[in-house]
Design a binder for these strands. Structure first.
Lengths: 213, 213, 213, 213
DNA sequence: CATGAATGAGTCTTCATTCAT
DNA sequence: AATGAATGAAGACTCATTCAT
């Protein structure tokens, strides 16, 4: 599959006519939009705020994205919020690292407010939640699933374990804690991992579990 | 957290003269407000919508609650969303019943949208999330904790288990599933309960589990 | 046919609850709207201008009419721009009187600009031209046709004359003069009437024409 | 009325250096502008629409005409909308031919909308109506007047007839019919011509007609 | 008490025009 | 010359809130 040019203009002659669009402004706008989406919510966030925060005029925003929804969709789509810590060989440590990165990211980008906005807007702007899933939730779940597969292959967890359910069991306590007002406890990640590994431990076998400590 | 009066008049002591306020209208307004809060979100929901849905005039609403935030706070405060299924003696069944009631309630009241709204509004109207916690999240957690305590006393789970963490492990998968777009699976409750009970099973034998602590 | 109440509220109890809508404001808004429609044209006229001219807030306008188009439609519909001078028995004088009233009205309300606006908007807002026709053009044509019918019955004009065409021949010169930049000549009415009466004079008969002079 | 330059550059004398402006683009822009002026009206027509329709960029338009008003002025000035059918020797036929060309042209270029726009804009952009008169209305009136002069010389119409008024009587019914919603009737031209010729017929016999003047 | 009118602040979006390439 | 980016000045419409009946 060949590269698809970002815009039709770029097809011809490699360089489009006229003044090129400022990439710095693109980025500033998207960043400001995401910030404000998290801090204000979809409806409360105004294009004026975005324009001011990004140091551009409102029209410059509309030049790039036709509507407010388009802008926020783009902002969410551009967000890179999942970092993959390199597998260390130690399943437990890997899982904890992924969960720690998760909670750190959520805190950094006011993630719970962002998530709340996407949930609240699901009726009116379902793209938001869809994008959040596609760009942040699912990639992170994939990382966790891969680690769990490695654990399964290593005999650390039962062969018939439902890995998707296990992934939800790993991530879930974070949400539940937040809802209970007990967010921000650093131990949550270890506790979740240990509970899942214990819960999925293979039958009664000799279990090499303690071995690698 | 101080008590929030249900309606503005309660601030005054005693009964005022003149035609008493219609309690039916009070209730209709609060119910309409909660519905719309879930379906539209805080900002998108308008007092006109509430007035129309409740069959009253906008002024009638303002007569009872000074501001939109007051109304929604009262609506959340009045919401009764936790039903306590009677303990059956079977811990596993009790836990599953509570979780099933949880997900049923969430579906019935568009709970994820409501939760999203409260999360999204945390900056501007923190009372919403606070009330949600107080009225729905914490009571349900209390039910779960009590069931787990009974399990602990019965020796079903380890004596040193962190019950709050266990509660989060029970509820969490629901949120995580929803975020992943795999909400609505009825098995989630059983899976969560079984994982937690397995993960917290007392080291009945020498069991190498505790070794790495 | 019984009277249709202007609004549903009025049906019950004769008097609606709450503060009554100010009739003075209604009228001021409609008058201002019509003035501005003539002087600015549809698109250039702003609701701000109308609000200021009428001494009300913009919202007061929106309370009564949902959109700008609705307002202007109502303004045009409310306009009473055709006065029927009483028949005098003298056909020529009657026709001239009607035409004079026509040009006087057009001048008074900046009619050519208003007509221009309705023509220009025919694509986007056909109601405007339709209303202008219904409320002003056709009623005046009816007056002229009745006078011509009287003339026909009196044998002043040919029995087979196409009266609708004759009406257009009476009114037409006004428009043609305006387009040519020769509007405002008071003689136009007499000239038009005399030309039509001469052109439609019955065959060669003894012709009672000069008789009533 | 002074001459309006077709494009901004004509102000400078002589030929400038560098790439000459594309005459094809000039024409495409003017044509698009006139089309859109008729179909959208002055204010609703946007330069973006013109640019797109003409296949050029907005800046290319501004390069030639400083403002929107300038462009539209030029577009109207460039419009050639009057064709002179050759005199046939038959006055009646000549007049009808001119009127038929008139209505055909009006239909072809959405003339009533164009006329409406010029009338509606008379306050803000009087040049439009002035140009419309100069380029289309007056030339056609001139053709009609010449034909009527030939008729007068041939003794077909009275020597003292007011020819300008007669011209308005010929053209007027077209406008009046349109306003009444009876535009598009092909007979209108014949009827108008016959009425005028009949009305202005010389008093061939003693004819009591002139008597009342 | 209850209602409907009235309002001011605010928001998205459009568009003619000016700049930079 | 020609293009596309960037912008400031509106404008229609919404909504929580306050008034008058």
């Amino acid at each position: 599959m060949h590269e698809i040019p970002v815009s039709a203009r770029e097809v011809k002659s490699g360089r489009s006519a006229g003044r090129p669009r400022s990439a710095a402004k693109d980025e500033a706008i998207l960043r400001a939009a995401l910030d404000l989406l998290a801090s204000q919510g979809y409806v409360r966030m105004t294009l004026d705020q975005v324009a001011t925060a990004a140091g551009v005029s409102k029209s410059t925003i509309h030049l790039r994205w036709k509507t407010k929804a388009d802008l926020l969709t783009a902002a969410l789509a551009a967000a890179r919020m999942v970092d993959a810590p390199p597998p260390s060989g130690d399943v437990r440590a890997d899982l904890i690292a992924i969960l720690r990165d998760f909670s750190a990211t959520v805190e950094r980008v006011r993630g719970m407010a962002l998530i709340g906005t996407c949930l609240a807007e699901e009726t009116h702007t379902p793209e938001l939640l869809a994008l959040l899933r596609e760009r942040t939730v699912l990639p992170r779940r994939e990382l966790l699933r891969e680690a769990l597969e490695r654990a399964r292959e290593a005999g650390r967890i039962r062969a018939d374990a439902d890995l998707e359910a296990a992934v939800s069991a790993l991530l879930g306590p974070f949400y539940a804690d937040y809802m209970a007002g007990r967010g921000g406890r650093p131990e949550w990640a270890e506790q979740a991992v240990d509970l899942v590994l214990a819960g999925l431990r293979p039958a009664q076998a000799p279990a090499g579990h303690a071995a690698h400590h």
